[in-house]
């Protein structure tokens, strides 16, 4: 029998490290490029005549469309293996998570497959986003009451 510490030492010795510099550089470039594309789209939508709120919304929707389409055509995973967090953190990653789960679970049915699995990766994002929002809402509400002097 080998000692656990001996095993751990061997695993540590032979497991290759991530190529941090390469990964981070690629993530920076891809993440930056996607945000720049967002900004360009925003300028386009503003130029067409949408107000700033609508333009912002349209930018998000456009990038979600792009992420979902590239996923559906089967290229997203091939890009993401290089871009890493560069495509994960922008809203394109959210679109990819939703679309890939939906496509994948199609074989298990519309309700029991797509219906259940579509939230598999996106669910936690929505859940904890909303929960943080509620927490902030409570704090902010109490704060407004105190400001109006009606809390105590």
């Amino acid at each position: 029998m080998m000692e656990t510490s001996y095993k751990k030492k061997l695993i540590k010795k032979h497991t290759p490290h991530s190529r941090v510099l390469r990964d981070c550089t690629l993530a920076f470039l891809f993440g930056g490029a996607i945000c720049t594309l967002g900004e360009l789209l925003y300028m386009l939508y503003s130029y067409i005549g949408f107000d700033s709120e609508k333009s912002g919304m349209l930018v998000t929707v456009s990038l979600i469309f792009l992420g979902a389409l590239v996923t559906a055509l089967g290229f997203f995973d091939n890009i993401a293996r290089y871009s890493g967090a560069g495509t994960l953190v922008p809203v394109t990653g959210f679109a990819n998570a939703v679309t890939s789960e939906a496509m994948d679970s199609r074989s298990e049915g519309l309700v029991t497959g797509i219906g259940v699995k579509i939230f598999n990766v996106a669910g936690p994002v929505i859940l904890y986003g909303i929960l943080s929002g509620v927490l902030y809402g409570i704090i902010y509400y109490v704060y407004t009451l105190i400001q109006r002097g009606s809390f105590f």
Binding site: V20, A27, G31, G86, L88
Partner: peptide, 15 residues
């Protein structure tokens, strides 16, 4: 800005 956020996230994933 977009690059930096992705960069930091990647750093967490890798390290």
């Amino acid at each position: 800005f977009g690059g930096l956020i992705s960069f930091i996230a990647q750093l967490f994933i890798d390290l």
